[in-house]
């Protein structure tokens, strides 16, 4: 057996330290799926310990789990790869409760994990689409700041525009 060319490059390990002190040792190829970490690696060069004061260990762990899956699945250029990723993504977001989803989304956004943000926002959207205005306010903890009648005005402003 000859060693394949893809494994000859030495995989560098990075240490990621979450806000609560929990550390994760991850391959560079995995961590750099996150834009923010990719930037840090490129800009700061040899720094092996990266502190992430805005993300706690629980959610950083989940984000990295997602990165790992996608990094692994992307290395073998199978045609069914896309399907595997899709299936795995579906599983990943399936049972997320609102609280976890929120913190994951904040973490993914902070770490510039664009693909993960896409996945999580789609999940949020699937939870709120079709909902009533009141329900949205409830979910997002938003108070209406419209003056009396304003909301009704927006509702009524729904006629056809044409030229």
């Amino acid at each position: 057996m000859s060693s394949s060319s893809t494994t000859t490059t030495t995989t560098r390990l990075l240490m990621l330290k979450a806000s609560d002190g929990v550390t994760f040792e991850v391959e560079e190829a995995v961590a750099t799926k996150l834009g923010a970490i990719n930037n840090m690696v490129e800009e700061e060069g040899s720094e092996d310990l990266i502190c992430l004061p805005n993300v706690n260990g629980k959610f950083l762990g989940m984000v990295l789990e997602w990165c790992k899956k996608h990094a692994n699945n992307n290395t073998n250029s199978d045609k069914g790869n896309d399907e595997v990723n899709k299936w795995w993504d579906k599983e990943f977001v399936m049972d997320l409760d609102q609280n976890t989803l929120y913190h994951l989304l904040m973490a993914a956004d902070y770490l510039s994990g664009t693909e993960l943000v896409d996945l999580l926002t789609e999940k949020v959207a699937s939870m709120i689409r079709g909902k009533k205005v009141e329900e949205i306010r409830e979910t997002f903890k938003i108070k209406s700041d419209f003056l009396p009648g304003q909301e009704e005005e927006i509702r009524k402003k729904n006629s056809w525009a044409f030229e």
């Binding site: 689409r129 909902k131 205005v133 949205i136 306010r137 209406s144 700041d145 927006i154 729904n158």
Partner: peptide
């Protein structure tokens, strides 16, 4: 949904 959610705030 988007159009409706203009009434949220």
């Amino acid at each position: 949904s988007l159009k409706r959610f203009r009434r949220v705030c």
